[in-house]
Amino acid sequence: MSLTNQYPDEVQAIFAKYPSRRSAVMPLLYLAQREEGYIKKESMEEIAALLDLDTTEVAAIVGFYSMYHDEKAGKYRIQVCTDISCALRGADTFLEHLCDNIGIKVGETTPDGLVTIEEVKCLAGCDKAPMFQLQDGDKVSYHENMTVDKTMELVEALRKAQAQK
């Protein structure tokens, strides 16, 4: 399914935003990541064609930025900040306990494909540690002042929502 078929209006709106076509590459990559949480080579090829770039040039962007993913993982990515400020407020321990509770290690995905746990650098939520962001395709939400219990409730809610779909 191509982006131009799937999101015709959004693609147009993105083009309208910049005087140079190439600037559209990042927003288009987010679109490409919306459904399945990662960017397939076909999407890179389509974006390259749309922007008159070579696929390699698009791939080079995907590779550079840490919020673009080129491999499938969980539907949701729980990205816990363990950078210095959060770590000073117990983020490492939080992450460890969270992993134990969910039953996977950092970088792994739950068997049902629902969540992947990742460790990330500072998210600008330092005063509300422990905290993480939840990446869902092209969307992100912040979850601050978290406890393992609150996180497990969130995961359950996500699981339920997913099951209902």
């Binding site: 770039l53 070579d54 390699t56 040039e57 791939a59 080079a60 995907v62 590779g63 550079f64």
Partner: peptide, 9 residues
């Protein structure tokens, strides 16, 4: 022919 690029960082 920009067929080479850097991946990752």
């Amino acid at each position: 022919e920009p067929v080479l690029g850097f991946y990752q960082r």
